[in-house]
Amino acid sequence: MPKQVTLPRFLRVTEVLEMTGMSRSFIYAQMAEGAFPRQIHLGPRIIVWNKQEVVQWMEDRIANR
């Protein structure tokens, strides 16, 4: 069977909040501590996160519980 290719996907802050169940302030505090994936600036008012990095962060939290 051919290997399934996962294309990168960007998440806006509302999607990150929904996926993680965390507040915006908690996410930014965790980023400041280096404990959450950094955002990507696509433009002056466009900030996104790499979906795979966020998913990996969530999987790491589950594995370390």
Results as ranks from 00 to 15, higher is better:
Pro8Gly: 03
Val13Gln: 10
Ile40Arg: 07
Ser23Lys: 11
Ile62Val: 14
Val16Cys: 07
Arg38Asn: 06
Glu53Cys: 08
Val5Trp: 10
Ala35His: 14
Leu42Tyr: 02
Glu18Cys: 04
Ala35Lys: 15
Gly21Met: 06
Ile40Gly: 02
Arg45Lys: 14
Thr6Met: 08
Pro37Arg: 03
Glu15Ala: 13
Thr20Gly: 03
Arg61Thr: 05
Phe10His: 15
Gln4Gly: 09
Gly34Ala: 04
Glu53Ser: 12
Val5Glu: 13
Met58Trp: 02
Glu33Gly: 06
Met58Asn: 01
Phe10Leu: 13
Ala63Gln: 12
Ser23Val: 04
Ile27Pro: 10
Met22Asp: 01
Leu7Arg: 14
Tyr28Glu: 00
Asn64Lys: 13
Pro37Glu: 03
Glu33Ser: 12
Asn64Leu: 10
Ala32Ser: 11
Val16Asn: 04
Gly34Pro: 06
Ala32Lys: 14
Arg24Ala: 12
Gln4Thr: 14
Gly43Arg: 11
Val54Tyr: 02
Leu17Tyr: 01
Ile46Ser: 15
Met19Phe: 01
Val54Ser: 02
Phe10Tyr: 15
Asn50Lys: 03
Glu59Trp: 04
Arg24Ile: 08
Thr14Gln: 13
Gly21Asp: 04
Gln4Pro: 13
Met22Lys: 09
Arg9Cys: 09
Ser25His: 03
Tyr28His: 09
Val54Trp: 01
Met58Lys: 04
Ile40Pro: 02
Trp57Tyr: 15
Glu33Val: 06
Ile46Asp: 15
Glu59Leu: 13
Lys51Ala: 15
Glu33Ala: 14
